Amino acid sequence: MISNYTRTLPEVFKSQITGKPVHPILSIENLQCRYGEQVVIESVSLALQAGEIACLLGPSGCGKTTLLHAIAGFQPVVTGNIQLSGEVISSPKVKVPAEQRKIGVVFQDYALFPHLTVEQNIAFGIQSMPKGQRQSRTQSLLQLVRLKGFGQQYPHQLSGGQQQRVALARALAPHPKLLLLDEPFSNLDTELRRSLAAEVRHILREEKIPAIIVTHDRHEAFIAGDKLGVLSQGQLQQWDSPQDTYQKPKNLAVARIVSEGSIISGTVLGKDLISTPLGEVNMPTAAYESGDRLELFVRSEDIAAGEHPGAVMAQVVEKNFLGNQVSYRFQLAAGETVEAALNANVQAAPGDKLPLRLSSALVFDQAR
Rank of each mutant, 00 (worst) to 15 (best):
S3D: 04
N4F: 07
Y5D: 07
I17W: 10
H23S: 11
L31A: 00
R34H: 13
Y35T: 03
E37Y: 07
V39L: 09
I41F: 00
E42P: 05
S45W: 09
E52R: 14
I53E: 08
I53F: 13
A54D: 03
L56C: 13
C62S: 15
K64F: 07
L67K: 15
L68G: 04
L68D: 05
I71T: 12
P76G: 10
T79P: 01
Q83A: 11
Q83P: 02
K95N: 11
K102F: 05
K102D: 02
D109M: 11
H115Q: 15
L116T: 07
N121D: 00
A123R: 12
F124L: 04
Q127F: 07
M129V: 04
M129H: 01
K131A: 12
G132T: 07
R134V: 04
S140D: 15
L141D: 14
L142S: 02
L144I: 11
V145I: 14
V145M: 01
R146Y: 03
F150C: 08
F150S: 12
Q152T: 15
P155L: 08
H156F: 09
Q157Y: 05
G160A: 12
G161M: 00
L168K: 03
A169K: 04
P174N: 06
H175W: 06
K177H: 14
L178P: 01
L179C: 02
P184C: 02
N187Y: 07
E191K: 15
R193D: 00
R193L: 00
V200A: 06
R201M: 03
I203N: 02
R205Q: 02
R205Y: 04
E206A: 08
V214Q: 00
V214I: 01
R218N: 10
H219Q: 15
E220V: 14
E220P: 01
I223Y: 02
A224S: 15
G225T: 06
D226H: 05
D226Y: 05
L228K: 12
V230W: 06
S232Y: 15
S232G: 08
W239S: 02
W239V: 01
D240K: 09
S241W: 06
P242M: 03
D244G: 12
T245M: 10
K248V: 09
K248D: 07
L252C: 12
A253R: 05
S259M: 01
G261I: 06
G270K: 04
D272P: 13
L273C: 10
I274G: 11
P277Q: 00
L278H: 02
G279F: 05
N282L: 14
M283L: 13
M283V: 14
D292S: 13
L296A: 08
L296S: 12
F297R: 13
F297H: 04
E301N: 09
A305M: 09
G306Y: 01
G306C: 03
E307S: 11
Q315L: 09
E318K: 13
K319P: 00
F321K: 09
Q325N: 10
S327L: 12
Y328G: 09
A334D: 06
E339V: 08
A340D: 02
A340H: 06
A341G: 09
A349N: 15
G351R: 10
P355E: 05
L362H: 04
F364T: 15
A367H: 12
R368M: 07
